[in-house]
Design a protein around this nucleic acid. Structure first.
Lengths: 163, 163
DNA sequence: ATCAATTTCTTTAGGCTTCAAATAATTGGC
DNA sequence: GCCAATTATTTGAAGCCTAAAGAAATTGAT
């Protein structure tokens, strides 16, 4: 007993399993993301970040602030500024300064933006279904559960570092 | 019976579960990736793509071609060209033209590159372990299994589209 | 041996992304 | 009211990334 404890302290711990898990998680995401990116470009000539941003706004009929968007998308503020600029330019987004706080920009989908997004989203959903087609409903449920646990664990770890 | 079949054809199928699964998968990856990126920058002033490239080379003592790297990392050729340029410039990589095929560039870690990578990798492994800390060994095994299934499913779907 | 097809890599143009610093507006304590 | 701290966003520099086109070398079929 003491021996095994001693050994655990002296030798660096083996985390190869977690490392492999992380690489596999990354591979899955990269694979699917690349596939979705390619299909969006091919079918609709739209980029994935634009689609993602529109997806956020579609869920918020009253609009969102840039900060909200950047938190939800887990990207930097500066990133959102540029994305929004281009989407306003192309007529998909409407941007206005908040009446109550002049620092805040509220963005919404325009009619055009919403129509285009809905059209893309319908097809997008079938792509995703196809990409996950070989997973049984039980697999899906189980993956959901384990990824929820993973997310919680990672958030806890991140909070430990940056409280 | 006929009714349910008819209905299945008439109404668009519901793939909301798969969509949620995909979003959760993406969230987990983004979360962990962002955390790793930040720690690499903070502790070693290195970017994640550079670290990833060095990780590939560390596993290949005899070097790799640029194509090999781009396939393994699942990024474009042009991307690798630029990454390698900067890593050669900083003295971490050695690049030489193959003796047998003058199209091919073989890259290796330099002594410096290997030393720095090993130092970073050791710490990196503990970060990953910490990020996944709340998962039991059984969870890890189960996630590995389900992600393997996911990867296979996605590859099959991708191949269906681009045979 | 020839040459079309393929493979490997680079280049280009454009967009995405981060980090850090700067700007502008609001809030809260006094 | 004043001003320091905070919050929301933008800007700038650097690097990452893709898609598509192009250059150079090899391969293979004839």
């Amino acid at each position: 007993m003491l021996d095994s404890e001693t050994k655990a302290v002296e030798t660096p711990e083996d985390h190869a399993e977690e490392l492999r898990l992380w690489l596999r998680l990354l591979t899955c995401t990269t694979l699917i993301e690349g596939e979705v990116r390619g299909r969006l470009r091919q079918r609709f000539d739209v980029t994935l970040p634009r689609f993602d941003l529109m997806a956020q706004l579609d869920k918020a009929p009253d609009g969102m602030t840039l900060s909200d968007v950047s938190k939800r998308m887990m990207v930097s503020n500066g990133n959102v500024t540029g994305l929004v600029e281009r989407l306003v330019e192309s007529g998909h987004l409407d941007r206005r300064t908040s009446d109550t706080d002049r620092r805040v920009q509220v963005i919404r989908l325009t009619k055009l933006g919403r129509a285009e997004f809905r059209r893309m989203a319908a097809e997008h959903e079938t792509w995703i279904a196809d990409l996950f087609a070989d997973l049984s409903p039980k697999d899906v449920r189980e993956l959901m559960r384990l990824l929820a646990k993973t997310k919680a664990s990672a958030q806890k770890s991140a909070a430990r570092r940056r409280p």
